[in-house]
Amino acid sequence: MNHLIVAAHPNPESFNHAILQTAVQALKAKGHEVVVRDLYALQFEPVLTLEDFSALRTGQIPSDIKAEQEYIASADVITFVYPIWWTGLPAILKGYVDRVFAYGFAYAYGKDGTIEKLLPGKKGLFINTHGTPGEIYDSNGMTDALKKTSDVGIFEFCGIEVVDHLLFGAVSQVDDAARKEMLKQVEERVSSLFQV
């Protein structure tokens, strides 16, 4: 299978990058093809400008957007790896969604006003970290809200089937043994979800 992993953390020494490397190694060990788009390393421009908006509406897709859309089009599986900041996506990843998951590429409106999902047949996975203990997010409804806005609001909206959403809480507060266990969970889950 062809995998696209979109990563969004500015620190290459972060736990998010450890998750990224764990996922890549697990997939490659199973014989999958993996492409990583590290948005910070790429210095991806997240701001959807008026010029972008106009160009997208007329089919004149800016080259940086076109390149990312080609990666998505050729992927069987799309995985987003990112930290939860202020109960949402980091700005660079939100901008990636704004610019790349564009009207006419990821979705469209039918003549009757219904949504046409333009990315069917693809699978999606989210892997997130956050500083708040998971039990708090579970009890106050935040875990469900995060899944709803990303799983349903982004991937499913475009026809991508979400196969899982892993959330790891209190990452900055736990010890290395706990983080190693989290990485083991990533490796095991990724290995079990996707067969060549």
Rank of each mutant, 00 (worst) to 15 (best):
V47F: 02
V47D: 02
V47G: 00
T49S: 14
D52S: 05
D52K: 06
D52P: 06
D52I: 07
D52L: 05
D52W: 05
F53H: 15
S54P: 00
S54T: 14
L56H: 02
R57I: 06
G59E: 07
G59T: 05
Q60F: 08
Q60G: 09
I61R: 08
I61S: 07
I61M: 11
I61K: 12
P62C: 07
D64F: 06
I65R: 11
K66F: 13
K66W: 13
A67C: 07
A67Y: 09
E68P: 09
E68M: 10
Q69I: 10
E70G: 13
E70V: 12
Y71S: 15
Y71V: 12
Y71D: 09
I72Y: 07
I72K: 07
I72P: 08
A73V: 09
A73L: 11
S74H: 15
S74A: 13
S74C: 06
A75Q: 06
D76R: 08
D76C: 05
V77Q: 08
V77L: 04
V77P: 04
I78K: 07
I78Q: 04
F80V: 10
F80P: 07
F80K: 03
P83I: 02
P83T: 02
P83M: 00
W85D: 02
W85T: 00
W85N: 04
W85E: 03
W85S: 00
W86L: 02
T87E: 07
T87G: 05
G88E: 01
G88Y: 05
L89A: 09
P90C: 01
A91Q: 01
A91G: 10
I92N: 01
I92K: 00
